[in-house]
Design a protein around this nucleic acid. Sequence first.
DNA 1: AGCGCGCGTTCGTCAAACCGAACAAACCGA
DNA 2: TCGGTTTGTTCGGTTTGACGAACGCGCGCT
Lengths: 186, 186
Amino acid sequence: MAADPAPPLATIAAALRRERDRAGISLTELARRAGIAKSTLSQLESGVGNPSVETLWALGVALGVPFSRLVEPPTAAVRVIRAGEGPRIRSEHADFSATLLAAGAPHARRDVYVMELEPGAVRVAEPHTPRSVEHVVVAAGRMRVGPESDLVELGPGDYATFSGDAPHRYEALAPGTFAVLVMEHP
Amino acid sequence: MAADPAPPLATIAAALRRERDRAGISLTELARRAGIAKSTLSQLESGVGNPSVETLWALGVALGVPFSRLVEPPTAAVRVIRAGEGPRIRSEHADFSATLLAAGAPHARRDVYVMELEPGAVRVAEPHTPRSVEHVVVAAGRMRVGPESDLVELGPGDYATFSGDAPHRYEALAPGTFAVLVMEHP
DNA sequence: AGCGCGCGTTCGTCAAACCGAACAAACCGA
DNA sequence: TCGGTTTGTTCGGTTTGACGAACGCGCGCT
């Protein structure tokens, strides 16, 4: 249960590079924003050296990413699991079953919502945090959800997941629609 | 979207102490397991000093906790949010509302399930991973859930969360009951 | 070309993280 | 009461991470 065996020297280097050019800034600029010497940053991105927490923290802040994105390895669009589909776990002696919809991304932050909406109204969400992922399970009613380019229709028990960093929508198709929404941002 | 303003010098100290005596081992012992000098550990728990990533990592491994539990602030316990309660986000121009049920624990792994069960059957779950947390939102029907010591009854839209490291149960009270279950383990 | 600017790397210096040992205090059994 | 053990803290010495300056390179001006 435990532990991460490998000291993440290389992981940090990779994460640092990745996040930096995602932000589209130069090494020099990042060093300036983080208030650290660019020589230090250079070495870190080269995979040598073992930064102090303060240093790495400053970089996390400057990059606008949660600290631990820099230290833990990376992760993984659009899937639908219809009610009754998906890997099922059955109890042998009870009327009970559970379906695994999404295995935990190791270090994602996930917020759980209940969402209610009525037909006619369309909620269009502007893209948020890059690499954020949304999960929806419809509890009652019907709804159309997903990225604008790939809308799907869901009924009770249906599950869908898609990237939150593109424009997407929620639209009820029946009165009394409500759903459980899990927003996962890295 | 960003950032954690406060450098976590003190957070680390606190987390270190907390996790260590949760493990029930002495400072000396922990230092030995982690392969660091006990003097170093002593200072870290005192809140002075700014550990290197390698050092902190070694401590994380020795304690059997995911690295970032040591650097991010702690979290919470057993709560019920009834349908319609809780902080609500309303759209001003649509029949839409969302309720935040659980703010993301920074680095929890969360698995999302849909669970169906019929009355008469009781699913009793043996405790799993320490510090694991379960979230349930009932989609349809009624169910009784929670730790054996504190069962609560939920209807459609109701939400409950509780610790998964104590014996707990799921029990349907009405036919056609199904729920969304989020299991979060650190 | 010649110049200036910003990029990222490399080199010496200094502060500090880490270490090992020595330390007082608390605890336990004889 | 008195040794022996274990607790966690404090004290020099060594290693090393972070800094600033200097460097080579590439690009866009004039």
